Computed example of a mutant assay.
Amino acid sequence: MNMIIFDMDGTVINSGFAIANTVNYVRENLGLESLEKDFILENINDININSAEFFYNEKVFTPQIQELFEDYYSKNCLVDLHIYDGIKKLLDNFKSDFKFCIATNANSNYARKMLNHLEIDKYFSSILGYNDVEKPKPNPDMVNVLLDKYSIKKENAQLVGDSTKDTIAAFNAGIDGILVNWGFSNYDNEKGALNSVEELEKKIIEKFYSR
């Protein structure tokens, strides 16, 4: 059995509108000025920054920040939500040969709601969020849970995501990680990021069908 683990936001679905609006809603309630959507999304995945400090001028995510974020996001996470071009076709093409799972640093309850809304939740055997493990990505907890749950050998698994948090989580779990460049981050070619779903299909074929 082979497994492909997908990050969700910025990889499978474009949820940037809701994420940026939620960040700005929290900032507004904290008396901070709004930020540009692209600026928010480019920095949301940056592993080198303290997100609480960067976005909200706090050392940690306070209960107030968490409550504001969850309240707004829960009501608006389906607004302007889209599947990235080619993703549904990829899932259809490979569904008989793979166990597909989601590993997202979002709350898994919202993840299920969003994937269900887009009618693609049926493709994923498990949907794990930060709330389902002790530590989110770049820690390997989610990956390890999924490998153990379905008794998948590490060489038979791959993680696909648009953040270095994803590829580091894959590395920390001992599986292949693929970085994609159609999401929220903007990588140069030196990082080897894939620019299209077609390139991802080729990578999958190379790893799993050429051995």
Rank of each mutant, 00 (worst) to 15 (best):
M3C: 09
M3I: 01
I4P: 03
I4C: 00
D7F: 06
D7P: 04
D7N: 09
D9Y: 03
G10N: 04
S15L: 10
G16M: 11
A18K: 11
N21I: 01
V23Y: 10
N24P: 14
N24K: 07
N24L: 12
V26T: 11
G31D: 11
E33R: 13
L35V: 06
E36G: 07
K37G: 08
F39P: 11
I40T: 10
L41K: 00
E42T: 12
D46K: 11
I49D: 00
N50M: 03
S51C: 10
S51G: 05
F54E: 04
F55Y: 14
Y56M: 07
N57S: 13
E58D: 03
E58W: 00
E58T: 12
V60G: 02
P63Q: 09
Q64K: 15
I65Y: 07
I65F: 06
E67G: 09
L68V: 08
Y72W: 06
Y84R: 11
D85H: 15
D85W: 13
G86F: 10
I87G: 03
K89L: 12
L91R: 07
N93W: 09
K95D: 08
S96D: 15
F98E: 05
K99M: 11
I102G: 04
A103C: 11
N109V: 13
N109Y: 12
Y110S: 09
A111S: 15
K113M: 12
M114G: 05
L115H: 09
L115S: 08
N116P: 02
E119P: 02
I120G: 07
K122V: 06
K122C: 13
Y123C: 12
Y123P: 02
F124H: 01
S126L: 03
I127Q: 05
I127A: 08
Y130A: 14
Y130I: 11
D132R: 05
V133Q: 04
V133E: 02
K135Y: 14
K135W: 06
P136I: 06
P136M: 11
N139Y: 15
M142N: 06
V143T: 13
V143D: 01
N144L: 14
L147K: 07
D148Y: 05
Y150D: 14
S151L: 05
S151W: 03
S151G: 13
K154G: 00
E155H: 09
A157N: 04
Q158E: 05
L159R: 02
L159C: 00
L159W: 01
V160Y: 07
T164Y: 08
T164A: 02
D166A: 00
D166V: 01
T167P: 04
I168Y: 08
G174N: 01
I175H: 00
I175G: 08
G177Y: 00
G177E: 02
I178G: 04
V180S: 08
V180L: 01
W182S: 08
G183C: 02
S185M: 12
N186V: 15
Y187M: 10
D188F: 10
N189H: 12
S196T: 15
E201I: 15
I204L: 05
I205D: 13
I205W: 14
I205A: 13
K207W: 02
Y209L: 13
R211V: 10
R211Q: 14
